[in-house]
Design a protein around this nucleic acid. Structure first.
Lengths: 119, 119
DNA sequence: TTAGGTACTATAAATAATGTAAGTAATGAG
DNA sequence: CTCATTACTTACATTATTTATAGTACCTAA
C-alpha cells in the first residue's frame, strides 16, 4: 500500500484515468479493501482505533493503521489524539468524508439487488 | 486476476465482508482497475472489443479481456458474437449493469467535489 | 500464396496490496 | 520495579493484480 512506483505503467495508467474520469479518481481514493466499511461505520459517529478494530473482524492493526492514514491524507477523516495514558485516538469523518454517505448508500442498494439477482 | 487462493486470509476476509456489507460486496464486484470506466462507456450503448480498446488508452488486450470476462460472469454485461470474418463481438450492459448508472454518477460527483477540495 | 483485420490466449514477469509476528512508548496501578 | 493498556511501528512473507510480449484462428481479398 505504502509503496507505489511512480515509474510503473500501472501508476501512469491510474493517473491518466483519474484525470479524465472522476469516477475512476474516486475509486482510487476510496478503493482500499476496508476503506468503505470503515467510512460506513464512521457515518454514525466518531470511533476510537480499538473500537474500529472490534467492528472489523479480521483486520490487522497494520491494515487498519494504513487505511486510516490514507483516509486522513485524503482529508476524509480527522484524527484526534487525546493526551492521556493509555492513549485515546478518535477518528471522525470530515465534511467531504460524510458526503460519501450517498455513494455508500447507492453501492449498498446496488449490491443488494445484484446479490439477490445472482444468488 | 484469475487465480484466487481460497485458503488465503485475504480471501476469507473478503468473503466475510461481502456477506455482511452490501457495499463491500459491490466493491468486490466492480472493483477492478478498469471496470467502472468500461461500464461508464457502455452506459451510452453497446461497443465492440476494439472500440472499447480505443476508448481506454493504456489498457492491454489481456486486461480488457479479463475485465470483460469478469463483468460477463457477474451478469453485468452480455457478450454477443457475430459470425463474421473478421469477427465482431459486441458488449452491452444488462439491466443490473445499467443500474450501475446511479452508483457511477454518485461516484463522479463525489470525485469531482473531492478533487476540487484537495487538488 | 500471402497479407490483413479482429478478437482473442498463453506464459512470464513486474508491481501492488495484504498478512504475520514481533516490538515500542508512555504512564499509572499495584 | 513490574505489569497492563492503547495505539501504533517495523521487517518480512505471501498473495493478488496488472503489464509485457508473443502467438492463434478465421476467412477474405489481392
Amino acid at each position: 500500500m505504502s509503496e507505489i512506483k511512480q515509474s510503473s505503467t500501472n501508476f501512469s495508467n491510474k493517473l491518466a484515468l483519474s484525470e479524465e474520469c472522476p469516477e475512476a479518481y474516486a475509486a482510487n481514493v476510496i478503493g482500499g479493501q476496508w476503506t468503505l466499511v470503515i467510512c460506513s461505520w464512521l457515518l454514525s459517529g466518531k470511533l476510537r482505533f480499538g473500537e474500529l478494530k472490534k467492528k472489523l473482524p479480521g483486520i490487522t492493526e497494520r491494515m487498519l493503521t494504513l487505511q486510516l492514514r490514507k483516509l486522513e491524507e485524503h482529508k476524509i477523516i480527522t484524527r484526534t489524539v487525546h493526551a492521556e495514558v493509555p492513549p485515546r485516538v478518535e477518528y471522525e469523518l470530515t465534511e467531504i468524508g460524510y458526503a460519501l454517505k450517498s455513494v455508500i448508500s447507492e453501492l449498498e442498494s446496488w449490491g443488494t439487488s445484484h446479490k439477490k439477482l445472482i444468488g
